[in-house]
């Protein structure tokens, strides 16, 4: 007995959507670069969750394999992102992205 036979796929869709939207909200809402990164991670995790749900629902392992790739990319992005952040911090001494608006107009 698997969850997928009792819970309609829509529910997972909604759940992922909500999590995804929370991530988006985080990106919009916060000015702290670290937390923005985390929000993006949240978005990616929402996608992962949905992929797994679909994979399970469709009985298809490709979806779960895809999650690996997403994880790899997420890890890479975080690594690079945090490296950039530390570099930025070295130059500006602030993680506040409001300071990063010299490039405009």
């Amino acid at each position: 007995m698997s969850i997928i036979q009792t819970i309609p796929i829509e529910w997972y869709l909604f759940l992922s959507t909500v999590l995804f939207a929370i991530g988006v909200f985080g990106v919009l809402f916060r000015r702290n670069a670290i937390i923005i990164f985390m929000s993006i991670e949240l978005m990616l995790n929402a996608v992962n969750l949905l992929l797994v749900a679909f994979s399970s629902y469709l009985s298809d392992s490709k979806g779960q394999v895809f999650v690996f790739f997403i994880m790899a990319v997420a890890a890479a992005e975080v690594a690079v992102g945090l490296a950039i952040l530390s570099m930025v911090y070295r130059n500006t001494n602030s993680p506040d992205i409001n300071n990063l608006n010299k490039l405009k107009w």
Binding site: V27, L28, I97, N98, L100, N101, K102, L103, K104, W105
Partner: peptide, 17 residues
Amino acid sequence: IRLAQTGNIGFYVFVMV
């Protein structure tokens, strides 16, 4: 319209969303 290019990521994301 260049003023829309505020340089502020928050705003960019907002417009995107």
